[in-house]
Every structure is written in structure tokens, then in C-alpha cells.
Amino acid sequence: MSLLLNELGNGIFLGAFFGLIALGYSMVYGILRLINFAHGDFFMVAAFVSYTVLGAVMVGHSHTHWFTVVWVGLLVMVLTGGLATLANQLVYRPMRRAAILSMMIAAIGLSQVLENGVLVTPGWGATYLVYPVTTPPSGFYVGSNHFTWGQLIIVVISGLLGLGVYLLVGRTLLGKAMRAVSEDQTAAVLMGINVDLVIAIVFFIGGALAGAAAVMTGVYYGQINYLMGFTVGLEAFTAAVLGGIGNIGGAVIGGLILGIVQSIGTGLFGAEWAIVVAFAALVLMLWFRPTGILGERVARRM
């Protein structure tokens, strides 16, 4: 029981990361039907940018100022949102009329450009880098299980960001425009919606969420690497598909389920099995419910 609680807690924690990144996959898929394989690398670039910025502002400080970490986090969210938007404008937008397969190959190409770009950047490179800030080990007990305050804060921040996106898409006029563009771009134009702008905003939001996840990953795990976006990207993509890709709530739920499944799997089989468990869950889901948990076939009427 206690062990299960521990796995559940760690699973929710892990799921918070997956959910944040899955939202970016899911929103872009929802609006363009594009699986943006470069999304995990936006996350990776954000980790390196925040590493450099934090390193610079922390010089001469012996202990961590969390206020500084928060504003660097916000800055990195804006920068990563900008990177994602720029990627859309330079790579995907000119291909709007191309076959979706071509766009996906372009996404893989972009992913390679970002990874290798970080690899050859002086000061970044191929080795694991130690993040300038780490969360303290202090925390609290639930029963006999120890969780850190850092974990709790990360889950809360992720939850608030996810809720923010959910309300934005569900309640605001901009969110309704996003859903309209997702269903029928031509009809959306005929409503006076600037479709290109709406798509750019979706990329920005997805990127910003990946930026937040990157800073929290760096702070919590304490090290970053230029290939970190590949694995996390695949896991987040799995989470998005589990929940029903294109669906905002689905991305969050998929993230949590994947986190819990992976955490329990790791507890049972060992950490080296984490990825295997994740993809086994994906395969099972695709067998039994290919549309994902919240995914549905949209009926179209003439």
C-alpha cells in the first residue's frame, strides 16, 4: 500500500512533465494535423538556454534565489514560445499546402537541426551539463513516503499551466477561434479569423509550456543533455496519443496515466524498463482504443 502510494506520487510528478509537453504536441496536432517531432527539441533548447541564463545571473551568489529562478523561467517560456513560433513561420507555414507527410519529415529535419545546433554550440556540446540550480531535499511525509517540496511545487505549477490552457481553449473567444481553425480553416477565414495568427499563437503556447517544463526538469533532475528532448518528446507524444491527440484534457490525463504506469513499471521491473513500459502502454491503447481515452471521431454532416 505504502509502495503503491509512493509510485502514485512519483507517477503524478512525472506525469506533470509529460502533460505539459504533451499539450504542445496535442494543440499543434489539433490545429494542423501535424505531429511536430521537433517539439521535444524545443524543450531541450529551452533547458540549455535556461542553463546559460541562470548560470549568468547566479554568478557570485552562494545560495539560490528562487525569485530569480521564477523570472528566468518566465523569460525562457517567452523565448521558447518565440522559437516554436519562428519554427512555424520558417518551416511549417510555407508548407501549409504540402502533404502532411512532407511536413512531418520537415519536423524530423528541424529536430536534427536543433539537436546538432546545440551539439556544436560552444559551452553546450555533447556532455551532460550540471544545472546551476537544484531543489533542496527537504519535504514532507505522506504515511511513510517522503516527497519534496520541489516536487509538490512542480506539480502545482504544471497543474495551473494546464488549467490555464484548458480555460483559454474552452472559454475565450481566441480558444473558440482555435477550435474553429482546427475543424475548418476556410470557414474560419470566412468568420474574419486570421488563421495564420491563430496557428502562430498555438505554436507559441505549446513552446512556452515546453519552456516551463524544461526549467523545472533542469531544476529537479539537475542535469541536461542535448538528446533529452528526443526521449521526453517520444514519451510526451505517447501521453498525447493515450489521452486522445488533439484533445486538451486528454493530453493532461494521458500525461498522468503514462507517468503513473511508468512509475509503477519502474518499481516492478527497474528503471531501465521505463521506456519499454511506456511504449507497451501505447501499443495496448492503440489496440483497444485507437482514438485514445478522450479522443472521438468527429462526425461530419453535409
Binding site: 473567444l173 477561434a177 477550435r179 474553429a180 470557414a187 468568420m191 479569423i193
Partner: peptide, 21 residues
């Protein structure tokens, strides 16, 4: 073919009609 947004409510469809204004 009308091209209404089938996954949105009637109210949301109407609100979007005023989007451009």
C-alpha cells in the same frame, strides 16, 4: 454546404460570427 463548426455549440458558432468585427 454551410460549413458550420460541428464540434462547437450553436452559441460558440454565433460568437465566432462576430470574431472579425
Amino acid at each position: 454546404g454551410r460549413r458550420i463548426f460541428t464540434a462547437l455549440t450553436i452559441g460558440e458558432n454565433l460568437e465566432l460570427g462576430a470574431y472579425g468585427t
